[in-house]
């Protein structure tokens, strides 16, 4: 079962992400964003980057995390497939991310930015859920 579900607004798109803990929220959000770019399975974890970020709350940290990944994607054309979270605590994250340079794989969509609009992370009944809206 996929742990992210897309939704559409009139002009843009977003996703609702679920996970059993905060770590899964960050991993599943990243997977959800990259699957929006392309559903191709021809990307391999060839190139590796280290990401270290801090925020003032979980929402800000998620905003920064997705924007960091978007930066690598847009500036260096890297599609990430593997997200290994080394450390996560309020409100810091340290992760190893692995991906592949986009060559001939089909890219279906671009997003301009991750927005703060209605961005939220909530914990209900031992399950975490996040809502993120993208500017297409």
């Amino acid at each position: 079962m996929k742990h992210y579900k897309y939704f559409s607004t009139t002009a843009d798109m977003g996703m609702v992400v679920s996970g059993k803990d905060i770590s899964e929220i960050f991993i599943n959000s990243a997977m959800g964003m990259f699957n929006l770019f392309s559903a191709s399975e021809n990307f391999k974890p060839k190139e590796e980057f280290m990401v270290r970020l801090k925020g003032e709350n979980w929402e800000e940290l998620l905003f920064k995390w997705l924007n960091e990944l978007l930066f690598y994607y847009d500036a260096y054309k890297i599609y990430f497939v593997d997200f290994q979270i080394l450390r996560i605590e309020p409100y810091r994250i340290e992760a190893l991310i692995r991906g592949d340079k986009i060559e001939n794989q089909k890219i279906e969509r671009e997003i301009k930015a991750v927005t703060y609009h209605n961005l939220e992370i909530v914990k209900k009944n031992n399950k975490w859920e996040a809502k993120v809206l993208f500017d297409l």
Binding site: S8, T9, T10, A11, M13, L136
Partner: peptide
Amino acid sequence: AGRVLSRHK
């Protein structure tokens, strides 16, 4: 013009 249908629709 502005969109009237979402991309999905």
